[in-house]
């Protein structure tokens, strides 16, 4: 079986590099988009198996916009999205409850920043198994 393709959409190059190292250690194939626009293009051209999406690119909620766009397209809506966020402490919202409620937050799971390598690997693994 070919290694799973993971697309990281995040505008912080250092965090992206760290994630790439972690994911590649597990033999995933990682590609990168540094903004939402390029991310959407790569989703279409590469058809990744999983998308890791930072919620706070450019603007505070650009990530939401991107995820909504992907999830509203029948061709791509089955690609799992893992949202990177530091939003919990800002809004007091419990993402565990919100994730899965598609009308509110159209992503499959979320991951709090700062990232823990073990957590990242565990969540990515779980989402790919689905």
């Amino acid at each position: 079986m070919a290694p799973a393709k993971i697309l990281i959409i995040d505008d912080d190059p250092d965090i992206v590099e760290a994630m790439k190292v972690v994911l590649e250690s597990k033999q995933y194939h990682v590609s990168i988009a540094e903004n939402g626009q390029k991310g959407l293009e790569k989703v279409k051209s590469q058809k990744p198996d999983l998308i890791i999406l930072d919620v706070m690119m450019e603007t505070n909620d650009k990530g939401f916009e991107v995820s909504r766009e992907i999830k509203s397209d029948a061709a791509y809506k089955d690609i799992p999205i893992l949202m990177l966020t530091a939003i919990k402490e800002k809004t007091g919202l419990d993402f565990k409850k919100e994730a899965g409620d598609e009308s509110w937050l159209p992503v499959d799971d979320y991951l709090d920043k700062p990232l823990k390598p073990d957590e990242l690997i565990a969540k990515v693994g779980a989402l790919l198994k689905k």
């Binding site: 912080d12 250092d14 965090i15 590099e17 760290a18 994630m19 190292v21 972690v22 250690s25 530091a86 920043k113 700062p114 990232l115 823990k116 390598p117 073990d118």
Partner: peptide, 20 residues
Amino acid sequence: IKGHLSAIQGCIEPVTGGIT
């Protein structure tokens, strides 16, 4: 500052975790 710290942590942890 938090953004930078987050990146620093993200970069250090794979190394201390032996991933590299």
